[in-house]
Design a protein around this nucleic acid. Structure first.
Lengths: 329, 329
DNA sequence: CTGAAAGCGCTTACAG
DNA sequence: CTGAAAGCGCTTACAG
């Protein structure tokens, strides 16, 4: 409801709408007197003129909006960082970023009659139906895949299996042979967890170790105690646990403590993420860091490249994973 | 770039654009034969017709989009929950929600030429300039204030001072008289921290206790040790610490442990949020819970009411704060 | 029961 | 140096 239109500005400054448009959009070949320019700008400011986004978009035939579809993941610093880098990279191209929080109850298709963005960036795969609808609406679809699909690699992707591998490598180097895996119970994490666990399994096989004993662990002591009991009852017992992330690792630590087991003496524990709490607990948590900033920057570069036609993909960010060795493993 | 338009559908089904519009929008008084309806729908589906959001918006004179402006806060479960409730409440009114992550480097004013939403929901106050521009663009501005402004109360608001008050009350009830406050160093948290600290100060005064000794604490052991040293050196020494939130409380716990002090024997600690880690550390953290879901629902109701004209504000959610007593205080 | 026409606000060839 | 006119795609009175 842009109350005041370019016609109002034209009338107020005694020129045509054409001239208003030229002045306000600083058109190149515009041979308009400085006096007229000033008059138009003053009128626009005085009237509080704001151009209609709908009209500009309709006229231009394309929108300058990009929508990022955020899967139903727990948000945190990593997602923040991704969004931030993306918004900055797009802003340099004159594109604005807005974020949609996906939920099954709110179908993506409800969005397109309301806004038709230039492009949609998905952090995980869309359903074929959603993808079809977007393409038909003329929306460019950019997917940064979660899955490890060799045909369509993505930034978030490359490292998930590597994370698990790095955990095992560190544990094996310390002489552990029988490992456990602490798998998260939040269903929203299953996609990532499966990827990381696969990396654990693969590396165990590579090193000639038995497969890890997988136990679900939720974020309370009782659940962790159950897992610990299972691990210690195994024959031979588990002496080292790789956890899905630091939060889960904290739970494992609590379970171990409740059972009177020493860390890393009886059981070693390694997490993922290097959250602040990792260095604050006792024993301090050994973990895998992921260089979220670097990965977020790379992801943004991939999206920009896809928008530019895909001809100039950014260089691989290289080894992005780091081992943070503290006391727990 | 909605390739196929309603004219294409009209041509393909042998009717006018009017009829296409009536059929596709299921217009009430539409006296159109079932056969025609089917023909139009089939043609639309076959062609993959998607209406142009820009054209609908221009024609209607108003958008069905609502933008929520997220201040530069660290996101987490609380923000997720707020957004979720908001999106659901708006969806019931046929409005779609998209989120803008505010940053000083990305001025809000860059957004309006790209999308002109029906309303903008701010989780904290806008600059007067931004607010003016939005109003002139015909955008309804709904602010759910962070500040405790008696003229414009907001959901997130009411409780911040209360959080601090509740912390002190619990500490005082256990006999503590000399308190410390662990203030976060992340500048993005200052707004909330000031509100909570003010609540602490106020309650101390009410109870006839000396004002708290405020120390900055970042999320590492060294910083916490510095704060602990200052607290213990005071005369009389601090025997109880209220922390900005659970993360900061975890740091304080680590600092206390490093200094060989017993919790709660030498120093009691109380946090805010009841994050999962609170129950996983030793000693388990006593904390204040905030019923984020309830507050998020209330906030969504406030926004919907404001959009409806403000005549029917939702009932106060009542007492939303809870004390979670564990071992640390 | 269905169609021709106007108009939302903008930008941009095209004429002067 | 500036203006009149067309057209982006849609919906909706208004006529038949």
């Amino acid at each position: 409801m842009g109350r005041v239109t370019s016609s109002d500005v034209a009338r107020a400054s005694g020129v045509s709408r054409t001239t208003v448009s030229y002045v306000l959009n600083a058109r190149e070949g515009a041979l308009i007197s400085e006096a007229t320019r000033e008059r138009v700008k003053a009128a626009a400011a005085a009237l509080g003129y704001a151009p209609s986004a709908a009209a500009r978009t309709l006229r231009a035939g394309r929108s300058d909006l990009v929508v990022c579809v955020l899967p139903d993941w727990p948000t945190g610093p990593v997602v923040d960082s991704v969004l931030d880098h993306l918004a900055d990279a797009l802003a340099e191209r004159g594109l604005a970023l807005l974020v949609h929080h996906a939920r099954d109850e709110r179908p993506l298709s409800d969005l397109w009659p309301v806004v038709t963005p230039r492009a949609v960036v998905g952090l995980s795969a869309f359903t074929p139906e959603d993808e079809r609808v977007m393409q038909q609406a003329g929306i460019e679809v950019v997917v940064v895949l979660q899955e490890e699909d060799p045909h369509r690699p993505g930034a978030l992707t490359a490292s998930q299996g590597g994370v698990g591998g790095l955990q095992v490598q560190h544990l094996a180097a310390a002489g552990h042979r029988r490992t456990g895996y602490a798998y998260p119970t939040d269903p929203r994490l299953a996609g990532f967890a499966d990827l990381r666990l696969a990396g654990v399994v693969r590396r165990c096989a590579d090193l000639g170790l038995p497969a890890p004993l997988v136990e679900p662990v939720s974020l309370d002591v009782a659940s962790a105690v159950r897992a610990v009991t299972a691990w210690r009852r195994a024959n031979p017992p588990v002496t080292a646990v790789a956890a899905y992330n630091d939060e889960v690792a904290l739970a494992v630590l609590a379970g171990l403590r409740a059972e009177g087991l020493a860390v890393p003496g009886d059981v070693a524990v390694i997490g993922v993420d290097d959250v602040p709490a990792a260095r604050l607990v006792t024993p301090a948590l050994t973990t895998v860091s992921q260089a979220a900033e670097v990965q977020a920057g790379h992801l943004a570069a991939q999206v920009v490249d896809a928008l530019d036609g895909g001809g100039n993909p950014p260089p691989d960010p290289g080894d992005v994973l780091g081992l943070v060795v503290r006391e727990s493993a």
